[in-house]
């Protein structure tokens, strides 16, 4: 009896591992095919523009709001900590390095997942459900090329931009709370910012933004696009399940990828 239970456990472990490996491979192929589909796609620029609108213009308010509050609170917290050591002049360095290296790319990506990624996943799920994806295929239109490729291409441009905007507005927020509320000289703040941030940090920031953009948008598209393959639900439930999965996995992937990139670069 005992031996059997053990065997079952090992088998369950094996089947889970296989499922994960299979899923990873499937996802990678999905992403590669999406880029490949760019070659045969007609009037791609228009679709990219549309996707750029969804990920860029639509998400700009939330990026700016979250960005400025992040900067404000960093300025506030940082000021009180540095005040104890009498090094308020380093506030700019603290705010800018936190924003450029970590918070900017990560928070911007999380916000974009929440707004654009979830919308993308749900939209594709519904299009799959109502046979719109199949309809594209019967027309001889690549459904990946029409639905996914433009989103991925837009993400590669939009994510770095949103991250840059997030960091910029965050720096502004830091200076607001530092100089307006707490009376730090704003020149001290900005010169500290400029002295602290180096090209390497900025490169790291954009590298992260690009990676997060590619991974999250592709992951959200993957889950929406495969809503019909959802194992334990169909119809509207499948759309909601795949959207949830898309958002949760994207968020985890952002943080995990952040750790990996940071550990490789530092």
């Amino acid at each position: 009896m005992r031996g059997r239970a053990c065997k079952d456990m090992v088998r369950a472990l094996g089947s889970h591992t296989l499922a994960i490996v299979h899923g990873l491979g499937d996802f990678t192929l999905f992403t590669l095919r999406s880029f490949q589909s760019a070659l045969g796609s007609r009037r791609l620029f228009r679709r990219v523009l549309r996707a750029g609108f969804e990920q860029g213009v639509r998400c700009l308010p939330v990026i700016l709001i979250v960005g400025i509050f992040t900067g404000l609170v960093l300025g506030l917290q940082g000021y009180y900590v540095l005040n104890r050591f009498g090094s308020e002049s380093l506030l700019g360095a603290l705010v800018s390095l936190s924003l450029v290296r970590e918070l900017g790319p990560v928070l911007a990506a999380l916000m974009l997942v929440g707004q654009a990624g979830s919308a993308l996943s749900a939209e594709l799920g519904i299009q799959r459900n109502t046979e719109q994806v199949a309809a594209l295929e019967t027309m001889g239109v690549s459904s990946l090329g029409y639905l996914v490729t433009p989103r991925l291409l837009a993400a590669l441009v939009v994510f770095p931009m949103q991250t840059a905007l997030f960091v910029t507005i965050g720096l502004l927020g830091g200076s607001l709370s530092g100089s307006l509320l707490l009376g730090l000289e704003s020149g001290v703040y900005w010169s500290s910012v400029e002295r602290a941030v180096q090209m390497q940090d900025v490169t790291e920031c954009f590298l992260k933004a690009l990676t997060f953009g590619l991974l999250t948008i592709s992951l959200c598209a993957y889950h929406g696009f495969n809503a019909h393959r959802c194992r334990n639900a169909t119809g509207a439930r499948a759309v909601s399940a795949s959207t949830t999965r898309a958002v949760v996995q994207s968020s985890i992937v952002v943080l995990a990828a952040d750790y990996v990139i940071t550990s490789f670069l530092v």
Partner: peptide, 11 residues
């Protein structure tokens, strides 16, 4: 924003 980060801050 990207130009600001790379040119002004990255330096």
């Amino acid at each position: 924003a990207i130009t600001y980060l790379t040119v002004k801050l990255g330096g």
